[in-house]
């Protein structure tokens, strides 16, 4: 006999990781996100690029259910995040330098609390594994507030990976990190995606990072998606050497993408 629960599981297993359908957010007179639509397939790393105020954070907020859309829908694994977020929240996690962990709790205590919240089986083993993989052992019993920026980022990433999420949403994961630590974090994210076939949505201002990690880039400007393609496709389309130049072209309205035929040549 088919149960409603089984039906829901089937829907969430075969649905795309993220589907935005005419997603719109208006704050008073200001249109932060203007009816964007896109689908992100499972196992991909997608970059969300755009200048300040382009609507990236609001889009991420709607995808995670922290912001209610004015119109349209954000579906994660088939669940409408404004109506039924709890169906899938255990499969998602998030990291941002603008969000913190309780400072007085040690790294281990913080990870233990979040492992409990996410219902992680074998919490101790999971925390040990994260400590090993993210090199937290040296400071795992130190208060989270007394860590360096690089250590804090690794701890925030450990928290974001504590439930082995199928969807990882990262808002500028390497902001304020030195190049060595940032490179190390990127390497870890690549390995995690390969091991888990996880989907990663990444908002970043670091074009090198996006070029290295992302299979696909969504370029946002004034609340709309103005371009969409792989980093290589975007470079070809704009006739540029790197994504930073593409970003500047889009941000400053300097150049329209070349016609498809010309770009193909």
């Amino acid at each position: 006999m088919r149960t409603p629960g089984r039906k829901v599981r089937c829907r969430t297993m075969h649905a795309p990781a993220i589907e935005a359908k005419n997603l719109t957010k208006q704050y008073g007179e200001s249109l932060a996100v203007n009816g964007i639509s896109f689908v992100i397939e499972t196992g991909s790393i997608t970059g969300l690029l755009g200048g300040n105020g382009a609507g990236k954070t609001t889009t991420i907020g709607m995808i995670m259910g922290l912001v209610s859309p004015t119109a349209g829908r954000a579906l994660v694994f088939g669940a409408d995040m404004a109506r039924e977020p709890y169906r899938v929240l255990h499969r998602i996690n998030f990291e941002s330098p603008y969000v913190d962990l309780p400072h007085r709790l040690t790294v281990r205590q913080n990870l233990n609390v979040f492992a409990l919240l996410y219902g992680v089986a074998d919490r101790r083993d999971r925390i040990e594994r994260l400590a090993r993989e993210l090199e937290l052992r040296e400071f795992i019993d130190r208060p989270a507030g007394k860590l360096s920026a690089g250590q804090k980022t690794r701890v925030a990433l450990a928290k974001a990976l504590v439930n082995d999420p199928d969807l990882l949403v990262l808002d500028e994961p390497t902001a304020s990190l030195d190049p060595d630590t940032a490179d190390w974090i990127r390497g870890h994210l690549e390995r995690y995606r390969e091991r888990k076939n996880a989907t990663i949505l990444l908002a970043s201002h670091n074009m090198g990072e996006v070029e290295r990690l992302c299979d696909r880039v969504l370029m946002m400007k004034r609340g709309s998606i103005v371009d969409d393609g792989s980093p290589q496709q975007l470079l070809t389309r704009y006739g540029r050497q790197n994504l930073e130049e593409v970003f500047l072209d889009v941000a400053r309205d300097r150049r329209e993408p070349m016609p498809a035929k010309e770009a193909a040549k």
Binding site: G65, L66, F94, D100, P102
Partner: peptide, 18 residues
Amino acid sequence: LEEMWSRNMPNLMISPLR
């Protein structure tokens, strides 16, 4: 308020905590 002061609220709001 401890959650607000420590900027931990979004972490809780995107967790399965009801």
